[in-house]
Computed example of a mutant assay.
Amino acid sequence: MAATQNGSNITANYTNQFVQPPWRVALWSVAYSLVLAVAVFGNLVVMWIIVAHKRMRTVTNYFLLNLAFSDASMAAFNTLINFIYATHGDWYFGEAYCKFHNFFPVTSVFASIYSMTAIAVDRYMAIIHPLKPRLSATATKVIIVCIWILAVVLAFPLCFFSTILTLPRRTICHVAWPRKTDDPFMYHIIIAVLVYLLPLVVMGITYTIVGATLWGGEIPGDSSDNYHGQLQAKRKVVKMMIIVVVTFALCWLPYHIYFIVTGLNKLLIKRKYIQQVYLSVMWLAMSSTMYNPIIYCCLNSRFRAGFKQAFRWCPFIKVSSYDELELCTRRLHPARQSSMHTLSRMETSMVACERRR
């Protein structure tokens, strides 16, 4: 996805005009390394929290697991290679990886944003139509598989037409479209619509309706004694997912604008400053892979407890009894039981947690 444009930027240049001074390369190296480290490690921790704790295996969290996997994969396989290629303008990694490098980002981003869309639709059904059947674990896994199949189909042209081209002084990785006049721009428009605009519209509509229900009225069909506790819990989940979606949208917006503008005005890609613009928008897009673990940790008590467990080896991280309970058993609402009963359940849960270790 990124290498496609980078390759087309420099195809016509037989000498490498994009060589940067060492200090600038060092600064960009630090920026991209930060994204790589935080995204891969943070998303791996998120995956461990969901897989290792039975309480975390919910419909929403299965989609978050898929989101974390796609983000970690893109950060691991594309971020560093994108940076090296965009910085030096020379492809060092062979034709097979050129095909994968152009193919996988579109696949990964598709899987990410449609996982978010699936969560939005699931939240909509759970809150607006609470009496209708919810997704089962099996149905959720089928949806995730379908998302990846559609992602592969959408990105397949990039894999099929990608190739390397050896120039007198360097090698480039680019997509050799059959008709070079219209195909690249039209394909990027299709990508922008299917992988950005359409899912954001769907999520915008669903979260607007859900938000109006949660913050402006009562939840349909909910008249239970612990109504306010359930309402607060649902608000927290929706708030977290809205922040995830908005972060994704802001990170990828400049990237899609860049492709559209350079597609309409091809003279821009011959400007030397375009390399710094490209590195900036690409860093922002790649950085979208590292924010979600931070958002989960800050806004969700169970994920925060999981991160504390993962980092309990740090001297300044303390795992409390409350953190242990967050991932071992369901919390009981104060209105539903006495203090003595709560204490008894907490003691039982702590014993269960200790046996798991």
Rank of each mutant, 00 (worst) to 15 (best):
Y258N: 10
N82S: 12
V145C: 09
L327N: 04
V59E: 09
Y62Q: 13
I260T: 10
A39K: 05
I172D: 02
W177R: 04
A137S: 14
D122H: 13
L264T: 01
S339Q: 14
S224Q: 13
H256A: 10
D323V: 00
P168T: 06
I294A: 11
V38S: 07
H341I: 11
M56Y: 01
A249G: 10
F41S: 13
I119A: 05
T163M: 10
L279T: 03
I243L: 15
L154A: 05
Y97D: 05
R355C: 07
L343S: 13
Y278L: 08
L264K: 09
I81S: 09
P130V: 03
S29R: 13
S349L: 00
K318H: 15
T262M: 02
A352T: 06
K318Y: 14
L131K: 15
Y62I: 03
T163G: 08
F93N: 08
I269R: 12
T138K: 15
L279S: 03
H333K: 07
L299Y: 13
R336N: 15
W28M: 10
F311N: 06
A126I: 06
P22K: 09
L264R: 07
A192D: 08
L80G: 11
L44H: 10
V237G: 08
L343M: 14
I260P: 02
I172W: 02
S288E: 00
T247Y: 00
R312K: 15
T342Q: 13
E354T: 08
P184N: 03
M116Q: 13
V40H: 07
T329Q: 11
I219W: 03
I190R: 12
F69D: 03
G7M: 00
Q309A: 07
Y124F: 15
Y196A: 05
V38F: 10
Y92M: 12
G94C: 07
T208D: 12
L194Y: 07
F104A: 12
A12C: 13
M346F: 09
R170L: 06
M74A: 11
V245I: 11
T348C: 11
M350Y: 01
Y92C: 04
Q230M: 14
F69R: 03
L194F: 11
W252T: 00
W91N: 02
S320D: 02
A335N: 14
I274K: 05
E95H: 09
S33C: 12
A68R: 01
N265K: 11
I257Y: 07
